[in-house]
Amino acid sequence: MSSDLDTAGLQSFIDEHGYLSWLGLCLDLIEEGRVRMSVPETEELRNPGPGRSVHGGIAATLIDTASGFALRTTFEKPADARLVTTDLDVSYLRPATGALTVDAEVLRAGGTTGVTDVTVESDTETVAVGRTTYRLFRES
Rank of each mutant, 00 (worst) to 15 (best):
D15M: 06
A81H: 12
G130P: 11
T42G: 02
G51N: 14
H55K: 12
G57D: 12
I30C: 06
V35F: 05
R72C: 08
A79D: 14
T113S: 11
L25H: 05
D6T: 11
G9P: 04
T116V: 08
D80N: 11
D6I: 14
V120I: 04
E43M: 11
K77V: 03
I58Q: 08
G24K: 09
L45N: 06
N47G: 00
L25S: 02
R46E: 12
L100G: 08
E105W: 14
V84W: 01
F13L: 12
D4K: 05
R108T: 14
S122W: 04
T116S: 08
L25G: 08
A70M: 10
T86H: 00
W22E: 01
L71P: 02
G98Y: 09
T132K: 01
L27H: 03
T133H: 01
D4C: 09
T85I: 03
A70D: 09
T116G: 02
D28A: 02
F13W: 15
E32P: 05
G130I: 02
A8E: 13
K77Y: 03
V39K: 05
H17N: 10
Y134I: 03
L20Y: 10
R131F: 07
I30G: 02
C26Y: 02
S53F: 13
E44W: 09
C26I: 00
E139M: 08
E139H: 08
G51D: 04
T101D: 02
D28E: 13
D15R: 09
S3R: 03
E43F: 01
L83A: 09
H17F: 15
E41D: 15
A59E: 13
E139R: 13
V35H: 03
E125A: 15
L29K: 04
A109W: 10
E16I: 00
Q11T: 15
E125I: 11
T112Y: 04
A70H: 13
E32I: 06
D15I: 08
S140E: 15
G51C: 09
V84N: 10
T86C: 05
G130H: 06
G56V: 04
D89R: 15
I63T: 04
V120C: 07
R52L: 05
I14C: 14
S38M: 15
V118W: 00
T86M: 08
V35W: 02
Y92N: 05
E125C: 12
L100F: 10
G98I: 11
T133F: 05
R72S: 07
A60R: 07
I30Y: 02
P50N: 14
R108E: 09
N47C: 14
V127C: 11
A59V: 07
A70P: 10
